[in-house]
Design a protein around this nucleic acid. Sequence first.
DNA 1: CGGCATAGTGTCCGGAGCACACCCGAGTCA
DNA 2: TGACTCGGGTGTGCTCCGGACACTATGCCG
Lengths: 229, 229
Amino acid sequence: MSYTYEYPRPSLTVDCVVFGLDDDDLKVLLIQRGVEPFEGRWALPGGFVKLDESLEAAARRELEEESGLRPGHLEQLFTFGEPDRDPRGRVITVAYFALVKLSAHALRAATDAREAAWFSVWDTPKLAFDHADILNTALQRLKGKVRYQPIGFELLPPKFTLTQLQRLYEVVLERELDKRNFRKKILAMDLLEELDEVEQDVSHRAARLYRFDHKKYRQLEKAGFNFEL
Amino acid sequence: MSYTYEYPRPSLTVDCVVFGLDDDDLKVLLIQRGVEPFEGRWALPGGFVKLDESLEAAARRELEEESGLRPGHLEQLFTFGEPDRDPRGRVITVAYFALVKLSAHALRAATDAREAAWFSVWDTPKLAFDHADILNTALQRLKGKVRYQPIGFELLPPKFTLTQLQRLYEVVLERELDKRNFRKKILAMDLLEELDEVEQDVSHRAARLYRFDHKKYRQLEKAGFNFEL
DNA sequence: CGGCATAGTGTCCGGAGCACACCCGAGTCA
DNA sequence: TGACTCGGGTGTGCTCCGGACACTATGCCG
């Protein structure tokens, strides 16, 4: 089967920058390429868009196929389309930006036997194509967005301690925060549900667990409330 | 000439949302379509991307061709790619967001005789394709961005009064601002050069003119300064 | 020269942000 | 069993910023 057009057309792909949080380290999901070009190199998960699926659906599908992950947050990041970004010809890629709860998902082996793995975002191998640019753009977006939208919670398990939450912000923003001020501020927003549970299996005083109240956030948001760390 | 591929490919276009400021009204540039589909309807300026030009170059080229405008600010907005957004088939469009100094540019007749005109963003005719969505997205972006990046100046003439600047923010943000607080804040940033000139041809006390100091802004920006209205 | 239209200017108050240090509770180990 | 260790958890005071607020100045016009 082949397809013929009057004018030349580019290929269209989606690529996903998937972030996960592992204790004090921010991770990104990479896939080892099994085919040329850049065979053997690590790259962002992604692939070609089918002509009858939306861009976002394509991103979800590719991510599921290559890693088994279903992100808690997914949004369009940026479209990269420099003429020479792919040696095979003109390939436009719509990059997506995703957050997953690393704790909840084991990586499934990719269907096509390529390897998927988590890397620290501060220490990735050399990436295929312009994926380093894409990763960088995604990091900037995460840094900017985490402060005025409560998307950070998508990186944590459903029940978390305030210290975990603070660490998350410290890792993403790359700076230390004052414990008391952080707690004061985040609790004042009244978006966290205080649970009657504490951490388990720690060799010191156990911390109280909290849960993010999505419903309340949506209500407040409608009423004009602005999340801001 | 025709082009044949092993897999089907989408068409790729760029569309530009160009904003201009006309006194107290925010305007958007629209083009009347001369061909099907949506012949006669108003639409955003845009067109097909050539395979050897970057996306941004395509946006600039189309804008120049269809209106003669060269925007002072141009950035990628979002990529729209729903499968059914164009009746001709799968067409992905990368939308750009541009600001021009309305005062400085006369609209040139479009090369292909279609008409170009400015419309109030609050009162546009029914638009072709999903261009209403795109316009909406651009408006949100403008609203959000104008507060933490000094891009608003691209809408004003090079020399402007503080009242003009304030009006700009009021129009974009859709709320009134306090004159004294506004002046205090904007002048405290030390980004405006106070000129030894005043408005001309006004039938009341003439206001002093200012100029935005791009060089100083870049310096401060490097030093970690954050513009914030 | 009086009227009008816009320019231009300073103070006060309350709330938010930030810096800062000590006791608590649970487990561990000698 | 008691002392130690390790993070958990808490309140105050100061400063600075943001927001409310109203009058005088200047230039044109009739």
